[in-house]
């Protein structure tokens, strides 16, 4: 009995310390406060984007297809055999960043977001603070179709050509991959790192060097455009909490006011796919942990039980 009381005291003080330095401290460090010092609690919006205008008109995919040339002046749609007019490096030189290929856009982005984005890009992407009038900067995406019907038609077309199911990597590439590298996933802003072989006599790998040069130039343009090079996302899933990632991707300004990161407008499903990819590269041991854990704990339960019986055998007749 006495031992259990002592154990209770030890556990109590351990838990108080744990609570103080972990959940409580992290809450205090990361909480947002307004000018009066009151805490701002961010309400998750489940990737529904309630601040954007609801889409009341029904899009017509055929009508959208008819006017897709309004988009392909800058964007490629590889799945429909439409090449972008410039390659990624040249685009980055011209715009700061490469306009995305639209093949998978309908599968990863929210429909309402896309319609609003076509009608009013800077507002929808929450980058108005960067492209204020008089700043001398213009957002590369112009207002293509200010009326809801045209926008809805284009979105209907994009959805009609999008694959039903994307792999986590495809979702990541479509939503994040033009600005963020993921070196553990061997992904650069210009695509997968090519498999090359160094020259056996010189030990040099000109093909790889050329690729690296291209990436370096692209990153240079991107860093100028964004203010700094967007971080590599290899292990971001361990560096930020999943909650932060969700709120940040849903509404970057709410977590990091003034950030150059745009609201990219992923759907709930798109977000889950992106997180799945980030887990693949940043926390690949998760399935293995879950498989091995119960066996190891089971072993120690049996070990402890046997040890208890051993202890009892020796201590039973000591008092």
């Amino acid at each position: 009995m006495k031992e259990l009381k002592i154990l209770a005291v030890v556990i109590f003080f351990t838990l108080v310390t744990y609570y103080g330095v972990e959940p409580y401290a992290h809450h205090q460090m990361h909480k947002k406060v307004d000018a009066q010092g009151n805490e701002i609690v961010y309400e998750s919006q489940d990737f529904k984007y309630p601040d954007l205008k609801a889409v009341t008109v029904k899009g017509d995919a055929a009508a959208g297809k008819a006017m897709i040339s309004a988009c392909t002046g800058c964007h490629g749609i590889e799945s429909q055999k439409m090449q972008a007019p410039m390659d990624a490096s040249a685009s980055a030189g011209a715009y700061g960043v490469n306009p995305p290929d639209l093949s998978n856009a309908g599968a990863v982005f929210d429909e309402k977001f896309l319609v609003n984005f076509i009608m009013n890009p800077t507002h929808t992407a929450m980058v108005e603070h960067k492209f204020k009038e008089g700043s001398g900067k213009t957002y590369p995406m112009p207002v293509v179709a200010p009326d809801p019907q045209t926008a809805a038609n284009i979105v209907a077309y994009l959805k009609s050509i999008a694959p039903k199911e994307l792999t986590p990597k495809e979702a990541f590439v479509a939503a994040c991959g033009r600005c963020h590298a993921d070196r553990y996933g061997k992904w650069t802003q210009l695509g997968d790192v090519p498999k090359t072989k160094p020259n056996i006599t010189t030990h040099q790998d000109p093909e790889m060097l050329a690729f690296k040069m291209k990436v370096a130039n692209y990153q240079d343009s991107l860093a100028k455009y964004m203010g700094k090079l967007p971080p590599d996302l290899s292990i971001m899933i361990r560096a930020r909490s999943e909650e932060f990632m969700e709120h940040f991707i849903e509404n970057p300004q709410s977590q990091l006011p003034g950030t150059a990161m745009p609201r990219v407008g992923v759907s709930k499903e798109g977000f889950e796919k992106v997180v799945a990819y980030l887990e693949e590269t940043g926390d690949p041991s998760k399935p293995k942990r879950q498989a091995v854990g119960p066996w190891v704990l089971g072993f120690f339960f049996i070990f402890t039980l046997l040890a208890y019986l051993w202890k009892q055998a020796h201590w039973r007749d000591l008092h």
């Binding site: 361990r238 560096a239 879950q290 854990g293 190891v296 704990l297 120690f300 402890t304 202890k311």
Partner: peptide, 29 residues
């Protein structure tokens, strides 16, 4: 024999943390 029993209890906690709750020991920053 008592040491080993206490160690067993401790290892249950230890490996519970290793598999299911290691974040506290590996700061996100």
């Amino acid at each position: 024999s008592k040491d080993v029993f206490v160690m067993g209890v401790y290892f249950i906690l230890f490996f519970y943390l290793v598999f299911y709750h290691f974040e506290f020991a590996m700061d996100p920053v």
